[in-house]
Design a protein around this nucleic acid. Sequence first.
DNA 1: TTTTATGCAAAAGGTTTGCAACTAG
DNA 2: CTAGTTGCAAACCTTTTGCATAAAA
Lengths: 135, 135
Amino acid sequence: MSFELIEKLRDKGYKITRQRESILAVLSEEGHQLLSAREIFKKVLKNGGCTNFSTVYRNLELLMQEGIVRKVELNRDAACYELSNCEEHHHHLVCTKCGNIQVTSYCPLDELQDEDGFVPTEHHFEIYGYCKDCV
Amino acid sequence: MSFELIEKLRDKGYKITRQRESILAVLSEEGHQLLSAREIFKKVLKNGGCTNFSTVYRNLELLMQEGIVRKVELNRDAACYELSNCEEHHHHLVCTKCGNIQVTSYCPLDELQDEDGFVPTEHHFEIYGYCKDCV
DNA sequence: TTTTATGCAAAAGGTTTGCAACTAG
DNA sequence: CTAGTTGCAAACCTTTTGCATAAAA
């Protein structure tokens, strides 16, 4: 699972609760797929874990602060989350027909010229359209 | 004001109500600044108009469908809107310190290579950081 | 034991909706 | 006249918060 992450949290002084572990376990499952808070909640329960919506949100907040989790806001009702260290920096291509999400390592920030002295610290880039099976 | 837009709507069979006109007027004010539904609502009232939150939302929805308005979701509580035809395609640089928003005409979609046959129809690109006065 | 985390229920905030009343054309 | 719009209030959903209880360390 994600022993390094657990250790990182422990070292920082956070307690390792069953809930926290379950949430990290779900996020570590089957390769970095984007999950909403609700989906994480359900998956924890399905895995036999025990948690609560508030707990999920509070942990996601904490994990984001620690740079372990990244929030991605797509054209959807709820925000999605993914482990930020499980893969290199990337952006998402969302198929608006089948819902499939693919990843690209292309990052526009590399190409951005100086914009009147603006110093970027963060950016969002998501692409919507049709995947090759839905064109 | 925005006679062409009014005409476009009328031609499409939509009725031109005072509310609809006021909302368009506010969006046309002082060059393409991003406004939330709440801000639009307040500005309409301040201008002596009369409207309602639902009406603002319903009109924004309609104006988006007609390609007249574009929704931009920033790192904020509420979504923002701008006229989509008042300027050429652009993206936003948001200063997270002073809140100032500047615009860039740079668009990453031009650089995007073929991504496994994905056909983009829409994209979001926003940059957060410090403007030159806040660095 | 002490500090942090959880669960619950309620609140907050943006956005949407049902429906009756209204109005532009 | 009548189809499309508005206003109002209530619903919806996600996310946040207060507080008492529970459990890591």
